[in-house]
Simulated assay, not measured.
Amino acid sequence: MVFALSALLLIELVLQFTWNRRYFSWGIRIFNRRIAAPSDWRERLSLGSLEYDVPRGKCLHLVFRPLPDGSYAFRESFAQRFYSLMRGRVVVDPRRREVRVEGRCSWWALCISLLIFPLMVVRPAAAAMLLMLPYFLVCYLVQKKMFGAVATVIEQQLRGVPSADAILRERLQARRMPQA
């Protein structure tokens, strides 16, 4: 069982590191926020600047990458202090006129959580693993706050608050224009 969990952890780390499209779009969704986005609002959206617009937490930094299907995947940086329990994706859906921020559960954390109680029945000495559950809860609450920050930044962009990308373009354009 230890080898299976270790293999699952390694597979999940490889899929996160390689930004696998299927990995970021499949799994148990534990965070889902739908933001109404009419077509004229969607033009203001700058998903490429989310990494700079989302405020960094004390110990958590999100990294964003575009996926081939047009959505943006995000996960915690590997330079963090705790194991990632969620991965996310931002999907612009013009048909439904919305932007979705989805957070999916880590396979490794889910397997450990489900196996703790059966493992305790077989090996009572494994009761110390119950401490993983409060740890997972704290990590989940921290990451849910960060997912909420991503949704807040997207809402601000849709409402016209300039993104870091837009501010940079304005500054570059101002530098190129000759002074009168």
Results as ranks from 00 to 15, higher is better:
residue 128 A to I: 09
residue 141 L to A: 09
residue 139 C to Y: 02
residue 57 G to P: 04
residue 134 P to Y: 13
residue 105 C to Q: 11
residue 55 P to D: 11
residue 45 L to P: 00
residue 144 K to Q: 08
residue 177 M to E: 14
residue 124 P to S: 13
residue 60 L to G: 02
residue 123 R to H: 15
residue 164 A to R: 02
residue 85 L to T: 06
residue 51 E to H: 02
residue 132 M to Y: 14
residue 63 V to Q: 12
residue 83 Y to E: 05
residue 108 W to V: 12
residue 30 I to T: 14
residue 64 F to M: 08
residue 162 P to Y: 05
residue 110 L to I: 03
residue 113 S to Y: 09
residue 36 A to F: 01
residue 6 S to V: 13
residue 8 L to W: 09
residue 178 P to D: 08
residue 126 A to K: 06
residue 112 I to E: 01
residue 101 V to R: 05
residue 93 D to A: 01
residue 62 L to I: 08
residue 102 E to A: 00
residue 107 W to Q: 00
residue 137 L to D: 07
residue 90 V to I: 09
residue 176 R to T: 09
residue 50 L to P: 05
residue 149 A to M: 08
residue 138 V to S: 05
residue 123 R to C: 10
residue 120 M to Y: 06
residue 153 V to K: 01
residue 144 K to V: 04
residue 156 Q to K: 06
residue 125 A to L: 14
residue 130 L to T: 10
residue 39 S to D: 13
residue 38 P to S: 09
residue 57 G to D: 11
residue 22 R to E: 00
residue 127 A to K: 09
residue 135 Y to M: 12
residue 178 P to S: 10
residue 29 R to M: 06
residue 94 P to M: 11
residue 134 P to I: 12
residue 25 S to L: 07
residue 10 L to M: 14
residue 129 M to Q: 11
residue 52 Y to L: 10
residue 112 I to N: 06
residue 54 V to C: 05
residue 147 F to S: 04
residue 92 V to F: 05
residue 167 I to Q: 06
residue 118 P to Y: 07
residue 33 R to W: 02
residue 78 F to V: 12
residue 147 F to E: 05
residue 72 Y to F: 11
residue 106 S to T: 04
residue 138 V to Y: 12
residue 135 Y to W: 13
residue 76 E to Q: 15
residue 70 G to L: 12
residue 126 A to R: 02
residue 104 R to N: 08
residue 111 C to W: 10
residue 131 L to A: 13
residue 114 L to M: 15
residue 67 L to T: 09
residue 11 I to L: 15
residue 12 E to P: 04
residue 44 R to H: 03
residue 95 R to S: 09
residue 180 A to T: 08
residue 133 L to A: 14
residue 40 D to H: 12
residue 56 R to T: 12
residue 95 R to H: 07
residue 127 A to W: 15
residue 14 V to G: 12
residue 124 P to V: 09
residue 176 R to V: 03
residue 24 F to W: 01
residue 79 A to I: 07
residue 88 G to R: 01
residue 55 P to C: 15
residue 42 R to E: 03
residue 180 A to K: 04
residue 3 F to A: 13
residue 3 F to M: 11
residue 35 I to Y: 03
residue 89 R to N: 10
residue 41 W to N: 01
residue 27 G to L: 04
residue 69 D to Q: 09
residue 113 S to D: 08
residue 166 A to Y: 01
residue 127 A to N: 03
residue 47 L to K: 01
